[in-house]
Design a binder for these strands. Structure first.
Lengths: 200, 200, 200, 200
DNA sequence: GATGAATGAGGGTTCATTCAT
DNA sequence: GATGAATGAACCCTCATTCAT
């Protein structure tokens, strides 16, 4: 379900061990929503169902999240993090390996369910779309940066490098999103190798 | 189902000019749904709104399409066509150009609105997902075929060629789908050139 | 489906052999309605379903029967007949046997389906209720008459005989109706014997 | 489910006199449904009408009874009770009187409206049919038991006694149901006397 | 006469949201 | 703060009935 960033354990005394039923109501609501939104989608999830799964009274959902959309926004807000620090470990001379490493660790802290939500609900609310856009931008930026560092000389103009970065980002996102729909798989490592070869 | 389109002007005398109110009610319903589904999505479109936009009474929508989902399914069925004939014009020695031409004419007969629906509602119904999967498969098949023909010799193994095909398909779909969400643009020609270079 | 009292074979030339698809549309509509009303009830039967089963266009149902209720009324009218002639074969001295014979041949010409309709839809329309009432009355009348003839002397006052007649009618009607609901069976012959014994 | 009745006056201060608008919304809904179902039948009663008569918003009906049929089922469940204890007061030697007493107090706790519903809607739902079947069975059982006790000696075989019990049950149920339809009345006392005479 | 498209008034049901307790 | 009854606007869908052809 991803890291929950427990909000101080409203219901348990500090220092006490935490078990499922002890988790704070707000967290349980978000957990439930995450599972449901990922499974059947935001629109198809009634708030009452969230409350039921979270084992909290229906009114409490609206106590914490005045509008239903706030649950989604909060989920995106608290449970997806696009890492925008420029920490890219690029190995000069190894463009393919550098891209592979990027593929292996997307600059995105989010559970699989949250990733699903991020793609599936991009149409639902601006904040989700923004987050997805930021993720895309960050991947491109990292890919670009990695390639710049990794490539021996500035062989090939900057434009081609940009295309390579964008293409790689497309593949990574595609892998998470449309692959699920179409059933086709892509091996990011192979793509990394292909791109490195194109630029090499 | 199958292609209709030749339902023609039941309501107009032959030879008369056709305007909106002259077309088939069923066609007007599909037109309205196409516009609305593309704009705000299937779930967010009430059937009453479809009827209003189509200028038909609400009941008539259900006369033609017993369930709301049938409107979507019919739309996909009748207004998107994945061309699965192997007519790929590959120019030996010009992989980049061949891919570019493929990009310029996706094996998909569909209005921009229908394309949007195809991507946006892939989660909504299996038939949409299937169609999208078929499109993806066909693009990959064509890209592969084009590259096989275009490349001078079998330089590089078949696996790399496959990766190139899949990558190119990813980019094309990405362009139609996620680009819309993230705002990033890709120049398919540049990607074609990149890939050709990688294999060349 | 009971006797259909074919209305002159509108669709076939006279003298031609009749087969199912040859039956006149009005008759097929009534046949279909009889089956459906008996099966799921009048309210739960859409006229469209009648038309479908009858294999006639929907509009034709309303051509013959301007209102839906007219189908039911016509069915009752044409396909149930309460025989009100006083033809009761009573055997003096054999009250039990006389009642048994009455039980065996109710003064009602109607298919099992029509009987079901007669009971089930008694609430739906006055004409059905009337017919049922007439049937009940006729059974009582016959039972009374039979007993009067069958019993050796006027032992027991007229009141008791009346009670016996009414009771017997109740049992006969009950047998067709509530028995179906509760699953309990009654043997009319045994009741006849019981009543005869009570009066004997 | 089970018996409620003790939901009491959530909305009234203790000690206050209770009037219609003071009762539980759930109770008012059931009251309204009882009246309407008895009057025009289950199918012909829109839920909106129930809400109107109960003076509650339409949505509240579905808050308590997710499906319309649940209103009927609950009504049967909570407002009809078939007494299945074997408390039959039989007076030896007085079969007629014993049956009469049984007739006077059916083993059924239910308002006249609920009785009407019980008979009228036996086709509508299995639970209603079951309840009616149980009632019928209980009446038969009691009648049999009463006759066994009341009759001086085991004159007449058990079979005849069984027939008498079933007949009497038929008359009692018939009295409530078909009588209403046909307008014919039966005097249970007279039938009791008739049956007693038959067995005596 | 025969036909099926057209019509629109509900019907049951859902559900986000409010609010008194 | 916490709760679940209360609210009502929509929503999908049904269906008797009409009517132009």
């Amino acid at each position: 379900m991803g890291s929950l960033r427990q909000r101080s354990g409203r219901s348990g005394r500090p220092g006490r061990a935490r078990d499922a039923s002890d988790t704070d109501a707000r967290t349980r609501i978000l957990d439930a929503a995450e599972k449901l939104f990922a499974g059947v989608g935001y629109e198809a999830t009634p708030t009452a169902e969230i409350a039921r799964l979270a084992e909290v009274p229906k009114g409490l959902v609206f106590h914490y999240f005045p509008r239903k959309i706030d649950v989604l926004v909060t989920l995106i807000d608290e449970r997806t993090l696009v890492e925008e620090s420029p920490e890219v470990e690029a190995v000069p001379g190894d463009a393919a390996g550098t891209l592979s490493r990027l593929a292996r660790r997307l600059p995105l802290s989010a559970s699989p369910a949250m990733r699903r939500i991020l793609f599936r609900e991009a149409d639902t609310h601006g904040s989700v779309r923004d987050r997805l856009g930021r993720l895309n931008g960050e991947i491109i930026r990292r890919a670009r940066f990695a390639l710049e560092l990794a490539l021996p000389t500035r062989r090939g103009d900057a434009a081609r490098l940009e295309v390579a970065a964008v293409t790689f980002a497309a593949v990574l996102l595609y892998q998470e999103n449309l692959c699920q729909l179409t059933g086709h798989h892509i091996d990011p490592d192979a793509v990394a190798e292909l791109i490195a070869h194109a630029l090499g």
